[in-house]
């Protein structure tokens, strides 16, 4: 077991190292010259030369690569061309809001996914309709779901707010709104945060929920056909008890793996939804950085998300082998 954990973590570290090399190569392949991006187009030749030496761009590529990795290990992600601040400072400001949004979305996605999977294994007309809804849902772009939510719940029925992480009564934008208010015991603040997060989180959660639901459904079908379920049923347990006590725990594994994998795909959705709802997170930071080719900012975002993704998937694998010792990688 210990060996397995060690091996899994070592491979995760290897992947992250490879990611940094990929980012370094991309930076070199980029047609934006960092010196000109920092100094502007009208800098004198002497200033350009001085900045080139300061950034170490005159050194051999391999030396540059090592100092790049060395800087990353000290959380030095370079300076953003757009905000002129260290990328790590920018990320520290924008990351919490995204983490909060993603966690709520993930919670909704897993809950909804399990419900969808459970309902869609039943037979009959309702299940058929339900499968049709799943198919359409899996084909809907996340922004269209946001649009529907905005038109219906904000514009038409006035039940949810359209933008931001918290209402105007909250002085601070960015950071963990729900969590902070919960710690401070500010119930109306918590409610405000929940009201604001509902629509964006729902827009992000729907597509992953459907993928999770599909995987859960097929593993549930396999489990329900197995011998121990037949035994459980023949000893007189009700469908409910068989499902809750025997089937769900044995078929939730693939659903969990899918959840980890969906995290990576979710980010494109997160960025789009943050853009629509003016959510002060790193998706918003990314969309601001793309048009001006602010590569250090994008590289920082890629690195943070890549590291998060790789390690969460490592944790999912470890958790799965803890839950089911037969799982080996």
């Amino acid at each position: 077991m210990f060996k397995f954990v060690l091996k899994r973590i070592a491979s995760a570290v290897g992947v992250v190292l490879a990611l940094t090399v990929v980012l370094f190569i991309l930076q070199k392949a980029s047609n934006t010259n960092p010196v000109h991006a920092i100094l502007g187009p009208n800098a004198s030749a002497a200033a350009v030369k001085a900045e080139t030496i300061k950034l170490g761009l005159n050194r051999p590529l391999l030396a540059q690569l090592f100092s790049y990795i060395g800087n990353l290990l000290q959380f030095n992600l370079g300076t953003s061309y757009r905000t002129r601040r260290p990328v790590s400072t920018d990320l520290a400001q924008y990351l919490p809001a995204t983490v909060e949004l993603a966690l709520v979305a993930l919670l909704i996605a897993v809950g909804l996914g399990l419900i969808l999977g459970y309902i869609s294994i039943k037979n009959g007309i309702p299940a058929k309709i339900f499968r049709g809804v799943l198919l359409v849902g899996a084909s809907t772009p996340s922004y269209l779901i946001s649009f529907a939510g905005l038109v219906l719940l904000y514009s038409h029925f006035h039940v949810l707010p359209a933008t931001g992480e918290a209402g105007a009564t909250q002085p601070f934008q960015g950071g963990f709104v729900i969590f902070d208010n919960l710690v401070n015991g500010n119930i109306s603040g918590v409610w405000d945060g929940i009201v604001h997060v509902t629509l964006p989180a729902l827009s992000i959660a729907l597509v992953p929920a459907i993928s999770i639901g599909r995987v859960f459904r097929s593993s549930l079908e396999a489990t329900l056909r197995s011998d121990f379920v037949r035994t459980a049923r023949s000893k007189g347990l009700s469908d409910q008890a068989v499902f809750l006590r025997h089937a769900i725990r044995n078929s939730i594994g693939p659903g969990l793996t899918m959840t980890g994998l969906q995290l990576g795909l979710m980010f494109a959705g997160v960025a789009v939804v943050e853009d629509i709802f003016a959510w002060p997170g790193i998706g918003y930071y990314t969309t601001e950085s793309i048009p001006v080719s602010d590569f250090p900012a994008i590289a920082g975002v890629t690195l943070v998300l890549g590291v998060g993704y790789v390690f969460i998937n490592a944790l999912v694998d470890i958790a799965q082998s803890l839950a089911d010792p037969r799982v080996k990688l």
């Binding site: 795909l265 990314t286 975002v301 890629t302 790789v310």
Partner: peptide, 21 residues
């Protein structure tokens, strides 16, 4: 496996940011 274990869309965004939109 290396490419499979990286988040695809994020990497695609980084590539586009490097090459220009």
């Amino acid at each position: 496996d290396l490419f499979l274990s990286l988040p695809g869309p994020v990497l695609a965004i980084a590539v586009v940011a490097a090459l220009g939109p």
